[in-house]
Nucleic acid binder design. Sequence first.
DNA 1: AACAATTGATTGACATCTAAAATACTCGGA
DNA 2: TCCGAGTATTTTAGATGTCAATCAATTGTT
Lengths: 171, 171
Amino acid sequence: MSASLHGADAETRADSSDHHALRLWLRLYACTHLIEKRVRRRLQGKFGMTLPRFDFMAQLDRVPQGLRMSELSDRLMVTGGNVTGLTDTLEREGLVVREPDETDRRALRVKLTREGRKVFRAVAVEHEGWVIDMFKGLSDEEAAALGEQLITLKNHVLENVPVEAVREHKS
Amino acid sequence: MSASLHGADAETRADSSDHHALRLWLRLYACTHLIEKRVRRRLQGKFGMTLPRFDFMAQLDRVPQGLRMSELSDRLMVTGGNVTGLTDTLEREGLVVREPDETDRRALRVKLTREGRKVFRAVAVEHEGWVIDMFKGLSDEEAAALGEQLITLKNHVLENVPVEAVREHKS
DNA sequence: AACAATTGATTGACATCTAAAATACTCGGA
DNA sequence: TCCGAGTATTTTAGATGTCAATCAATTGTT
């Protein structure tokens, strides 16, 4: 990347690349949180809605028959306890309902209420507009490349089985 | 992008591009949080340290003379109240100290203690290793391109003055 | 059928975070 | 000098998030 691909000894290259990794990670982190924060603030300011609740409802909107608590925690990549709390709040507000699952009495199906769906759809339209605007700074080609690199990165991270997961399996 | 596009042609194209932006954002979000979560878990598992505290100490490590609370909240992109809480915890653990600012009695300078610096340095070495490994999936060229795109994206987002900022000025 | 292991969901304790109000101090001008 | 605007920090209330423990229901294996 920076200059001397020819003649630079391996050690210098490795060292330089290392710092690059850290810088790249900080940049990725900062950029994502910048956008996230902006979305969060607008959701709060214009609709009195929070990002977690919006994400929650977005999952449900695609699935008329509803989702189990466990499916929600998988899709949202959060813990079950968190889903319980979010569901409590949204149910209290009349935006979702818990219904017993026909086939498994341990499970619950969470669905959007008619009101919940109406609210979500209204917010979603604006939300998409914000995101589109924020990503307008990238050309189609840049956006496509970014998408590819993110997939590559994600796959590489997922392939390396995390230490914690290994530990969880009793030997 | 919005409502009244009449041509089916334009509408289709806009629609497709719109979903691209949304998908790209979700991918960016998921990827960042995947890495973040992994770092978080390892910090907790191996050192009993949290990511916010690590970030906090990382800022201080670069600045021997310490930073003001307000500088910390700027650099960490979090609110002042949050910095107060983090400082309380780290001070209680003996990793940082609050010292009065010579020139402004309203302000405080937060510094790493000797112990704090020692702890941070030890953790930082491992932390950098994790990040390097996770970004090894990208070639130098891909990494460089990713970095560029993130800068472009960030600048474009920052250029557009957020609605909230405008609103803060009394009309 | 009996029973151990698993799975779905909830709970409680704790750590981040934000937004908004309160407190303490600084600084520039009338 | 005094006063009003602005700045630095803290406080409070509330939302998110994790982890570990718990309870209830299901499943696989005898």
